[in-house]
Design a protein around this nucleic acid. Structure first.
Lengths: 131, 131
DNA sequence: CAGCATCCTTATTGATACTG
DNA sequence: CAGTATCAATAAGGATGCTG
């Protein structure tokens, strides 16, 4: 129950479709400009990138350094606090590399996962163990 | 970019408001019945618990063992594959315990985080470094 | 007991156009 | 360049009641 709260909060911070990817980029490259991040994550829109960065900044995960100049220049980097997330990110990344393959073997890449979940069938009949 | 895909997929699997908590319970208690899980996570609804468990089952993270009897009895447990997620869960849990406190210091528990993010202000003026 | 079906509310993500 | 603003679409989450 308290555990539940922990995980929920942690997911608020690093959940979201792009946050782990953004953090990973910043871990790898150190300091990055807005446009660099956008190039690294080709599928993210400017709006989403801005939103996610603002949330990460709010949680003191990334630092935003604004250069007062024309044209504007803004650099993002992990904060001290943000760097403490490294083990979590790395654990996720490692697991992904090691185990996502397994899922592709289970069900081919094709169909929507939601449909597949709904379609769960029971062709399994474990032993009947009376109460 | 490939990294992005990794993280996105991993979040599909362990993202969702309750999945980490469910998995954590199963890690701690081994095998649990549906009703036991519900008691452990008092705020989850039956619908959400069912949905999340089905998704975890689809991804071969939890095993669902059905006893053909009246009244029904269903037991959930982590699969072999699911147990490989342990490092990720533990990293999240550790980080939560160690660093969530820090956030409470930054901004009091009160206001909605979304509002707070929107209200981010710039009273910070870093050095001006021309291009 | 362990769900499923239905309906509904909120949150997240995205496309597009405009701005200092 | 680094954003905002607006609008629209989709997804996630939840309340409630019914069922084998």
């Amino acid at each position: 129950m308290s555990e539940n709260c922990e995980f929920t909060k942690v997911l608020e911070i690093l959940g979201g479709k792009w946050k782990p990817s953004i953090m990973y980029q910043l871990f790898m490259n150190g300091t990055m400009r807005f446009s660099e991040l956008q190039r690294s994550l080709p599928e993210i829109t400017k709006k989403m990138l801005t939103t996610q960065l603002r949330e990460l900044e709010y949680h003191d995960i990334v630092h935003r350094k604004i250069y007062m100049q024309i044209p504007p220049k803004v650099e993002y980097s992990m904060t001290e606090h943000g760097r403490s997330l490294s083990p979590v990110l790395m654990a996720m990344n490692d697991w992904g590399k090691a185990h996502l393959v397994h899922l592709h073997e289970l069900h081919g890449e094709a169909h929507s996962e939601k449909d597949a979940v709904s379609a769960t069938v029971n062709d399994e009949i474990p032993e009947v163990e009376a109460k």
